[in-house]
Structures are given as structure tokens and as C-alpha cells.
């Protein structure tokens, strides 16, 4: 689609700007930079990890079963997205939608649980302005949540595109990039539940 037309001579190489492969590589690079952003937020959390300012700490504030449920939602969402990925590769729209729909709902569930967690902390007087520890906690978990939210918007747009345009090469490429994004968000969450929640409570 994005190549010059006409036969390739021996000095000719199909020129491929904006092609799917280039976009996927570029997106991967963007994800690498995003990982560095999260890493800095992690480092910040570690630095401020004990700065409770006389207030409550992780043991008082975090509910591990709740976080476990959130984690399951996200991992399941990632796995279910695999159905969409496979469907896209096999050119089956029904499979793609069967994957995207549940993945979206599970992600939405994750966001609701997290929003509820934040709300309860804030009304309990333990919002991000309470201490440096809480500032760091809200920021890293919140940044991850904002990314998930953007992923959900992307997912909704993709459901629309699959239904309206079908599985064109570009639509399939976008699904691949969304998949990368979604799986990497789950990877970041592994870091979060391990080092923001578990290690702090242990």
C-alpha cells in the first residue's frame, strides 16, 4: 500500500515510509521511553517510601486482597486481548471483537476498582497532599491508571474501526500496537503491585 508502484529494478527498493512495520518499530521505541518515565516514578516512590509525615503507611492503607483482584482483572484482560491478536492475524473479525470487548470491560473494571481505592483514601484524609509517601503513591499508580484509560479509549476507537473498516492492513497494525501498549501496561503493573504494594506491606 505504501510503496511506489511499478516494477522494482535492480537499483530500486520499495520505498516504505509510514509502513506498518515502521510504525510498529516506532511505537516500540515510544514504549521504551515510557518505561523510563515509569522507572523515574518508581525511583521517586522508593526515595519517598518511608516519608509518612507522621501519617499512616502502607500497612494501614493498602488492602492486599483488593490489589490481588485488580491484578487478576488486568492479567485476564491482557490474556483475552490475545484472542483479538490471534483473530487479527487470522483475519476473523468476530474473533477480534470477541477479544476486544471483554478486554475493554475488564480494563474498565480495573479502572473502577482503582478509582474507588483512590476515592476512599482521599475522603479518609489520606489524599496525595497528606505526605510525600502518598504523593508518590498516587502519582505512580495514577499515572499507570491514566495510561490504562488512554488504552481503553484506543480500544474503543479500534472496535469502531474494525466494525467500520474491517481488518485492513493499517487496522491490523494498529491492533498490534494497541496490544503492545496493553501488555506493557500489565508489565508495569507487575512492578507496581510487587514494589509499591507488596514490598511495602511485607
Amino acid at each position: 500500500m505504501n510503496t511506489i508502484t511499478g516494477p522494482a529494478s535492480s537499483t530500486e527498493k520499495p520505498f516504505n515510509y509510514d509502513s506498518a512495520a515502521n510504525r510498529e518499530f516506532g511505537f516500540w521505541l515510544y514504549i521504551m521511553s515510557d518505561l523510563v518515565l515509569f522507572a523515574v516514578l518508581f525511583a521517586t516512590f522508593v526515595v519517598f517510601g518511608r516519608a509518612y509525615a507522621g501519617g499512616p503507611g502502607p500497612r494501614q492503607l493498602f488492602s492486599l486482597p483488593y490489589v490481588f483482584a485488580e491484578t487478576l482483572l488486568l492479567v485476564l484482560s491482557s490474556a483475552v486481548y490475545g484472542i483479538a491478536s490471534s483473530g487479527s492475524r487470522a483475519n476473523r473479525i468476530s474473533a477480534v471483537m470477541a477479544g476486544l470487548g471483554p478486554a475493554f470491560l475488564l480494563g474498565l473494571g480495573f479502572i473502577f476498582m482503582e478509582a474507588r481505592e483512590f476515592y476512599q483514601l482521599i475522603v479518609g484524609g489520606n489524599g496525595p497532599a497528606r505526605s510525600a509517601f502518598l504523593s508518590a503513591y498516587f502519582t505512580i499508580v495514577g499515572t499507570h491508571g491514566v495510561h490504562v484509560l488512554f488504552g481503553l479509549i484506543f480500544m474503543a476507537v479500534m472496535m469502531g474501526q474494525v466494525l467500520s473498516k474491517g481488518l485492513t492492513a493499517m487496522v491490523a497494525s494498529r491492533l498490534k500496537r494497541l496490544g503492545m501498549f496493553w501488555h506493557f501496561l500489565d508489565i508495569v503493573w507487575i512492578g507496581i503491585f510487587s514494589f509499591v504494594y507488596l514490598v511495602q506491606v511485607a
Partner: peptide, 14 residues
């Protein structure tokens, strides 16, 4: 903007 305490003088900032 939100009164957090990453770099403030108080409440644990650094």
C-alpha cells in the same frame, strides 16, 4: 497545582 509534597520543605518532601 495539587499541593503534593515531592519537593516541598514539609511533610516528607525532599
Amino acid at each position: 497545582y495539587l499541593g503534593m509534597h515531592f519537593f516541598s520543605n514539609d511533610l516528607g518532601g525532599n
